[in-house]
């Protein structure tokens, strides 16, 4: 009769490379999605804040629809619908795309909030000094808004990492799927899901800490 305890540690040891690769995939998906989402989100956020009525409406529809559906639905939609349109996305790409679109909606909303929350006096002082809109935006508004947004953005990063679990459903071999494959082999279900949870916890916790550190460093004194 196998001593389950040593069995677990042994199993963990032989699975470590798979778990590591899975973690790498999860982090890659998340990182790419965040990059895409942040850039796209900033642009949409700018459209929301400064755009004309057409841009603002389009941006608003985008944000409200994306934020009105669960991430899982978004992921599955991207994966299945795009095939119909002849775009055969590999699971990894579909995952990045859907998570990117998802995080963009959040980034857009927080950008709008950050910019609109800025004290009106800042724009007035810049205007009074003769600064153009572009100069005001780059030198006065954005630096302050970014500091405001940072905590929320870190949150979105963590949510995206957590969202990357869901891409296991479309077949991306990240942490969750790897864990399930390991469990299929050794039936140590509870223990390995615990390991899986632990890995996510470590990732999220580190991101949180890193975020707090950066927050402190760039804080306005």
């Amino acid at each position: 009769m196998m001593n389950l305890n040593t069995g677990f540690w042994h199993e963990l040891w032989i699975s470590i490379d798979d778990l590591a690769i899975g973690t790498g995939i999860a982090l890659s998906v998340s990182a790419l999605a965040i990059i895409m989402g942040t850039i796209l989100g900033l642009l949409i956020g700018l459209a929301l804040t400064y755009g004309n009525i057409v841009l603002r409406t389009l941006a608003r529809i985008y944000v409200d629809v994306i934020r009105g559906i669960p991430v899982l639905v978004l992921i599955l939609t991207f994966f299945y619908v795009l095939t119909i349109w002849g775009i055969n996305l590999k699971p990894f790409q579909a995952g990045v795309l859907s998570l990117g679109v998802f995080s963009a909606a959040h980034v857009a909303e927080m950008t709008r909030g950050g910019l609109q929350n800025l004290n009106k006096g800042q724009t007035e002082a810049a205007k009074a000094l003769g600064l153009s809109f572009r100069q005001t935006f780059l030198s006065v508004l954005m630096p302050q808004a970014l500091r405001q947004i940072l905590p929320t953005w870190i949150n979105t990063v963590i949510e995206t990492v957590k969202g990357s679990t869901l891409v296991s459903i479309i077949g991306v071999v990240e942490i969750t799927l790897v864990t399930q494959q390991i469990i299929a082999r050794n039936f140590l279900t509870m223990k390995f899901y615990a390991v899986c949870a632990l890995i996510y916890f470590c990732i999220g916790f580190s991101i949180e800490r890193a975020g707090k550190y950066v927050e402190k460093k760039i804080a306005i004194k």
């Binding site: 963590i158 957590k162 969202g163 679990t165 869901l166 969750t176 399930q180 469990i183 140590l188 279900t189 509870m190 223990k191 899901y193 615990a194 899986c196 949870a197 996510y200 916890f201 990732i203 999220g204 916790f205 949180e208």
Partner: peptide, 17 residues
């Protein structure tokens, strides 16, 4: 910091252990 899905899988598949 733990995805909801993992918590669900842990409770539904893991706790029976």
């Amino acid at each position: 910091n733990i995805p909801l899905m993992i918590i669900v899988l842990f409770i539904y598949f893991g706790l029976p252990d």
